[in-house]
């Protein structure tokens, strides 16, 4: 709750002796959304191995409120694009993005998804941001689990501070 209490309108709550917290509606919406991320892992390649490692008990992504992988885009908030996107799979990725219900965010996981990585050739899309909008990029080939968790925290920051539709 610390983010809420830092809100500029906090002064008022003192007079209400800690019973009531006032904040902006956007803030509380962001706070609620960032800790209940349902993710859709769009796993294609080697980065998926590190995604698995992050999701399992060693690194435990569950601690950050983003454990639940939903394999239907209609139930997901975050699309993790994990691995190389070839031209053959690109239309599928686009469809999945379109199917995801708002609000939605996209994390580009690893060098390949972000910019094509080691593959600069006829088969590979040079970064998924040529197809769909991306919110957070995670660098690495593959990124270490720590980097993935850092990327998740960055995404949560972004969600906390953005404007929400309601």
């Amino acid at each position: 709750m610390s983010e809420l209490i830092q809100s500029p309108m906090m002064d008022m709550s003192r007079s209400l002796s800690g019973q009531v917290v006032t904040t902006k509606f956007d803030k509380i919406l962001g706070w609620a959304r960032k800790y209940s991320l349902f993710q859709y892992p769009f796993v294609t390649a080697c980065c998926g191995m590190e995604y698995m490692a992050t999701a399992c008990s060693h690194y435990d992504i569950d601690r950050f409120g983003a454990a639940f992988a939903r394999f239907s885009p209609r139930q997901a908030d975050v699309i993790w694009v994990v691995g190389t996107i070839s031209h053959k799979i690109a239309p599928v990725l686009k469809t999945i993005y379109d199917q995801t219900a708002d609000p939605k965010w996209v994390v580009s996981f690893g060098a390949c998804a972000s910019c094509g990585g080691p593959y600069d050739n006829y088969a590979t899309v040079q970064g998924i941001d040529t197809i769909i909008p991306v919110d957070v990029y995670i660098a690495g080939c593959p990124p270490r689990p720590e980097a993935v968790l850092d990327g998740l925290l960055k995404l949560q920051d972004l969600i906390q501070n953005q404007k929400h539709d309601w």
Partner: peptide, 25 residues
């Protein structure tokens, strides 16, 4: 074929040692 990323073509265009990184993948 959804993950075809031109391993063989990439190896042809990199030196003997550089191609090892493609074999990782």
């Amino acid at each position: 074929g959804y993950l075809h990323r031109a391993f063989e073509k990439s190896c042809e265009e990199s030196t003997w040692n550089q191609a090892i990184i493609y074999t990782d993948r």
